[in-house]
Write a protein that binds this DNA or RNA. Sequence first.
RNA 1: GGCCCUAUCGUCUAGGGGUUUAGGACGGGUGGUUCUCAGCCAUCAAGCAGGGGUUCGAAUCCCCUUGGGGCUACCA
Length: 499
Amino acid sequence: MRLRFAPSPTGYLHIGNARTALFNYLLARKHRGKFILRIEDTDVLRSKKEFEKGIIEDLHWLGIDWDEGPEKGGDFGPYRQSERLKIYDAFAKRLLKENKAYHCYCTKEELEQRNKELLARGESPRYDNRCRNISDSQKERYLKEGRKPVIRFKIPERIIEINDLIRGRVSFDTGLMGDFIIIKSDGTPAFNFAVVVDDILMEITTVIRGEDHLSNTPRHIMLFEALKAKIPEFAHMAMTLGPDGSRLSKRHGATSVREHRKIGILPEALFNYLALLGWGTKESQELFTKEELVKEFSLERCKEGAAIFDSAKLTWMNGLYIRKKEPEELVELILPYLKEKNLMHLRGEPVGVRFIKPETTGVINVAPTIDKNYLTKIIVLERERIKKLSEVPDLIEYFLTEEIKFNVKALEILKKPGVKEILTSLRQELTKLIPFSQENLEKIIRDWTKRNNLKTKDVFHPLRVAITGRTIGPGLFELMEVLGKERVIKRLKFIVNSS
RNA sequence: GGCCCUAUCGUCUAGGGGUUUAGGACGGGUGGUUCUCAGCCAUCAAGCAGGGGUUCGAAUCCCCUUGGGGCUACCA
């Protein structure tokens, strides 16, 4: 079994394409077949090397690997269509010779004009095959005019039936189609031709692709037949839609794998989530490891209807995977985000984290160095609140800056009558405390609260706000222990002394 | 316009003629745990697009309508 994923490097890896790649990958691995990456870069204008690189990186990041491909090599290469131009040319010549294709001299403008007229008359816009039997003199005249011909495939009129692995029998009447272009006037192959030639030569046995290619499949089948090649099996998977049910596009937010990676979605989460889009098990299982998916996946269980990409569910799943990670690993994953927000400063090995003032620009105001140990402790406290890695800097900022910011709600709480007195008294109590441990803190603060006939709520909350600047966060005592005596006292002092 | 695909809670889905008062998950509501948030636990609301058939019986099979998507490009 040989499967392939054939992206066009005209942009970064789209979520929908990533899902196509994933399904191909899963099936290939399940059946211990070969998975091939082929770059369809015949659109010279839009294709960019940078995107090819990006797609390869993103696939790897997602956890998808392949057996043959442009960087990897293989016995069926080259795997970049731009490097196979001679091959397409030879196949086109063969069709020409066998009278299964012909040169067409119509210009883009002429075609456009004719289609417009057809449409105006209420007829179907399509090529009228007029160059099929063009005379030699006419041909010469066109050539003299400087027209560059395209090569069109001569469509045999008949009914073509596809036995799609996902949607069953689908039939098309080729009599309704016009002869289509296989070689463009610049000599490069049209998509419909290049795919077929490549799938033949790369001995692809199963083609899994998006439903947008279903209507192209009869054209492909005609070409396979004309070239006397074995026709592969086809499976057309339903499209991935945006929240409003239209095609997933930029206006729906993050649509590329890269963007998701950037906002801190874990590859395992995206992998798992994507698999669930248009596929599911009898048990409606939600969480799968890669190995489980390879084992469980099947085309028979793919849904025919399109699926809407739900980022809320992805986010939920991401939180789940984050909570499953070891704190040490999470710290490593978070480092780039902290760096980006200027919340840490990397220096040599091992990586050290230093305090800096949040609004520092230019010269970094060096503060006490803290290490990954400290970060790990922080992450342990905050882990269950993390949904995306990009949220972490904001979540843990008050652990990493000397001066903390107070939000509006926090300020309101600090302004309440009696709060300052409570904090003043509490500060004295805490100054004496050794060791500054969670257990110790809880005991002494609870005792103090009881002794003063106060409700825990009226003590704990202001205390939290005073030392973190915010009303939400991890458990108060564990938070205080991690923050450390020095910082806690300093922050309390700041509040108490301010008017 | 023509052709093709498609349709179960807001979303992802289970269901493939009777076992279904249509199950699970996300999201939402409520309650509990708790200084807060998150998490966890409990709980609630929410759906077979509409209309015809077939059948003793239909979410499940067929047809039509409607909605959505795709192809109809010298894009892929």
